[in-house]
Amino acid sequence: MKKYLYILLVPWLLLPLYSCEEAIVEPYEQFIIPKGTHSRGFRAQTLQASSLRFDVIFDETAVYETQTIENQHDINKLYGFSDCNSPHHTHSARFGWRWLDGNLEIHAYVYASGERITEFIGIVPLNEPRAYDLTLSDSHYHFHLQGYDPVSIARKSSCNRGLYYMLFPYFGGNEVAPHDIVIQILTKY
């Protein structure tokens, strides 16, 4: 009989599931690409929905000058995913960015059957959040940057069910980061 008293504890155990109010400050995750590297290292995470929605804040560290002038046109990778059971150099979709002519440009950056396809999307200001949406459909990758028209690129993978691993900020191109680069990302579920 005494054991039944433990049932009285159940309401107390339920308390952790209850929140009085929503958090006021949304926690951005800070990605730092250290000087002299392409990225901050390996990180394992998988995609869990057909739409990857997130906000990004770039700051002054996104302003850079490459050692070789032509490399300034290289597109750095921001955030995205590899397609179903494929290495990312075969099938993947990511947002890309670069600092060119005094602007921070955002691009769609796709590998489809090993072929690299990029398309300019828009320009974003420093120190201000912008919303990004990368949606996977049966036939296309749909890129949407807040304030710009959506861009769609054909998807060539016929696989649908399996592992979609996430791809995180990566500097380059050919060159490594000339200084620490800080990118703040807030993933929305």
């Binding site: 054991k3 039944y4 433990y6 995609l47 869990q48 929905a49 057909s50 649908n160 069910r161 399996g162």
Partner: peptide
């Protein structure tokens, strides 16, 4: 699979107490 499409691994630890 999430949404019958995305393969995921969820590691968890359970602490259970036998009531009866």
């Amino acid at each position: 699979l999430v949404s019958n499409q995305f393969l995921v691994v969820i590691p968890e630890v359970e602490t259970s107490f036998k009531l009866n």
